[in-house]
């Protein structure tokens, strides 16, 4: 890094990348992959998301990992962030549930309410 301008350029570019996701209707699936998540089985869940998206030929959804969000007792956790910024937090996932989320939420725009954090808390 030779100058602040360079940092600014990267920041702009990275922000744009996120913005592209947002403007062009790109949904993000973010899976918690800290120790707590992995111990609870986040890896197969992440794989299930990727496989199911591939199987259904869906290319405008990105799957990314992230750190611990804090509610470790609900791991594995994944958040679906829609182009308009709306977030749905899914908890206590397994590969089966991940596939259903792709089918219902990603493809058909119907969040699977029973897997959300709100439902799990009651």
């Amino acid at each position: 890094m030779k100058s602040i301008k360079e940092l600014e350029a990267i920041r702009e570019r990275a922000l744009k990348e996120i913005a592209i996701r947002e403007n062009e209707g790109k949904t993000r699936i973010v899976v918690g992959m800290a120790t707590c998540g992995i111990a609870a089985g986040a890896k197969p869940v992440m794989n299930a998301f990727v496989e199911e998206l591939n199987k259904r030929n869906i290319h405008n959804v990105s799957v990314a990992m992230t750190g611990c969000i804090g509610v470790c007792r609900f791991e594995p956790i994944a958040e679906v962030i829609e182009p308009n910024g709306e977030k749905t937090t899914y908890v206590k996932l397994n590969p089966e549930k991940a596939r259903r989320i792709v089918a219902e939420h990603i493809v058909n725009g119907r969040p699977v309410i029973e897997y959300t954090i709100g439902a799990a808390q009651d």
Binding site: I69, G70, K87, T88, G109, G118, Q121
Partner: peptide, 19 residues
């Protein structure tokens, strides 16, 4: 799309939870 006709009162995301 068939869309979301279900009740919206369930807290969908972490930000809406007391935690």
């Amino acid at each position: 799309l068939l869309g979301d006709k279900e009740a919206k009162d369930v807290a969908k995301s972490l930000e809406n939870v007391g935690f």
